[in-house]
Design a protein around this nucleic acid. Structure first.
Lengths: 113, 113
DNA sequence: ACCTATATGTTGGCAGCCAATATATAGGCC
DNA sequence: GGCCTATATATTGGCTGCCAACATATAGGT
């Protein structure tokens, strides 16, 4: 997969990864990788700042889990995050429909043919 | 549609627009706009340099039509351009499948259930 | 002692798109 | 004649958002 593949859809991927329940950053990377069949690999330099940004926007909340184990920052969706995910899904469907229609145009139905 | 919507897929759109036959730049803009249901609007500052680049890469060839009419630069696909379009289509399907799988994960089928 | 996996982050760079601007012809309208 | 819009092509400068590289730390295997 060429670079910049997820450009413009990173937020959607992160929000979707957290939909089924809280995860920490490293687990998000592996979850996205697994769900995409190994195609999508989030970079730490891309993801961590993005998670921070989404938290500042109120779409995620995080808490540190340091007990016994290694320290982990666990993220979960807020209500606003769930709404944002819905909007991201809609935008994604619109975009794929639009680009798909250009890439594979359905033959224009002629009048009475 | 938010900005940068076509990011990373501009070449695919241009090649696809030229698949059914030669067009000049302005006609490509209107064709893409129409095919996408008005969603995608190519900017001149984006498209013309891209067309130039694709021609330098040997994926398009162009000729000026200045007879009588306004001058127009008409582009058409080369054989390499047709092959590139096929590759762009494949890449697009892979990308949409991968992102789609993350956005709308199908429930993992348990063994023998 | 060393490597790998786990885990989180920062910094600098740059590709690729956009807005704004420039130019030119043709046709309609007042 | 003067103005606006559509047609038609092109360049410039700027910014967004991702990436590679680096930095740090613990735990477990060999």
């Amino acid at each position: 997969m060429k670079g910049d593949a997820v450009r413009g859809h990173l937020d959607a991927l992160l929000l979707a990864a957290l939909e089924q329940g809280p995860l920490h950053g490293y687990a998000i990377i592996t979850a996205v990788q697994k769900r995409s069949g190994g195609v999508l690999e989030l970079r730490t330099g891309t993801m961590y700042p993005a998670l921070n940004r989404l938290e500042r926007l109120g779409l995620l909340r995080s808490d540190w889990q340091s007990a016994g184990e290694r320290r982990r920052r666990c993220y979960e969706l807020t209500d606003a995050g769930r709404r944002a995910l819905g909007e991201e899904r809609t935008a994604w469907r619109e975009l794929t429909a639009a680009i798909g229609a250009v890439l594979d145009p359905s033959p224009a139905p002629g009048p009475a043919t």
